[in-house]
Design a protein around this nucleic acid. Sequence first.
DNA 1: GCGTGAACTTGATGTAGCTCATTGACCGGC
DNA 2: GCCGGTCAATGAGCTACATCAAGTTCACGC
Lengths: 231, 231
Amino acid sequence: MDACAHCAVRESAICHSLPEDRLEELSRYGRRQNVTRGQTLLWEGEDSLLVGNVIDGVLKLSASTWDGCDQTLGIAYPSDFIGRPFGTKSQQSVTALTDAMVCTFTRADFDAVAQRNPDLEHSLLQRTLSDLDHARRWMLLLGQKSAIERVASFLLEMASRLSEDGEDEAGRIVFELPFGRQEIAEVLGLTIETVSRQITRLRCDGLIETPGKRTIAILDREELETRAESA
Amino acid sequence: MDACAHCAVRESAICHSLPEDRLEELSRYGRRQNVTRGQTLLWEGEDSLLVGNVIDGVLKLSASTWDGCDQTLGIAYPSDFIGRPFGTKSQQSVTALTDAMVCTFTRADFDAVAQRNPDLEHSLLQRTLSDLDHARRWMLLLGQKSAIERVASFLLEMASRLSEDGEDEAGRIVFELPFGRQEIAEVLGLTIETVSRQITRLRCDGLIETPGKRTIAILDREELETRAESA
DNA sequence: GCGTGAACTTGATGTAGCTCATTGACCGGC
DNA sequence: GCCGGTCAATGAGCTACATCAAGTTCACGC
């Protein structure tokens, strides 16, 4: 497959570090795979047989407690890397939040190619370091922030991830969440009711609008940032 | 300095991946540094000028909210790597919990050596991947677990990290925490009072003993594991 | 001995967010 | 059209943890 050459994430996924010939090598092992919304690609605690790149769509990484509460541990967007290379069990499930397309490799294949391509490992290292930074910033949110701060932070992060163009004609930042309320709750370590109440509160205070169930329009970014930081 | 040859973490830090001659190259840039308890090596938000290996002692990674609440994001033990290589600000402070010894490099020096030594990068990648796994498991704790579950999980983790020998003659697992109560609270996202109460509760229930302020003896590991999972 | 200060414990009270229950909006099937 | 299902919003009450306020213990100096 020379699909790589025309891949939507050719320039942004870790593959970008490989020159043409090496890319060709990697591509022999890759497999493009459609995933439908709700489908789980990797299961928590099972051996991580697959790794890969997200090409399109949004997926979540999650883990759950003995009693079934789910916590979302990370969100994977196009060009993000998923799975756990180098011989370890996956500590989290990977589930599609939207219909998605991923480019997968068996872990064994990927490990072998990576060992032969330091540049690929370097890209992966860079990406893993940012993921770690990001996870730790999220720990601060989970450990210290109030419900309203969490929701405000979440909306701001989603805005920066999902609103391709800045603002619409009315100066609003509009975007479609790939999350239902329950899924937001799982990201923030809250309940669905609390999330709903905080969103209502932000709407009543005139900081946001919610034209559709999953559509958010940010009216006052500045104030929302203040709410994300202080009670 | 040929200190590397006799370094306490020669076999376990990321340096282990380097052969003698390459190690010699790296060691030219390294600087052994004593850190006293409470001293901060890297500051949140500042450019991470230093990176390095922990040789001895325990340090914490932490960040704080606008209003001064600290959250501990990770704990670094001997042979762990600290700092943020590859041109980014450090997102967290690194502070010594005990007197410690670290082997530091300027980030620029380290980056350059790493680029020339794929094996070193591979070790660092492996370590970063485990750190990420670990951080995400901690997110589950911060997002979902109750106070008693958090404290029990914490004690178990500390036991596995700090009790070199298994059990003493009485079948207890005894170890000295490098944390005061306030510091435990910062790890768990709780207040000092809540931590204290939960420890008292575990003591009253006969699962642990606290012979000294910072000394913990686990009497019933099994039951403690149960408490760490379920309410 | 006694005083001082830091670290920990304990108790009393408040409250943010959870739980449970209800209602309403939207949507697809028939 | 109506009906059933899903998802979000909202209300009432409860509970776990935070907050505030005393104690208590221990180490250290005099």
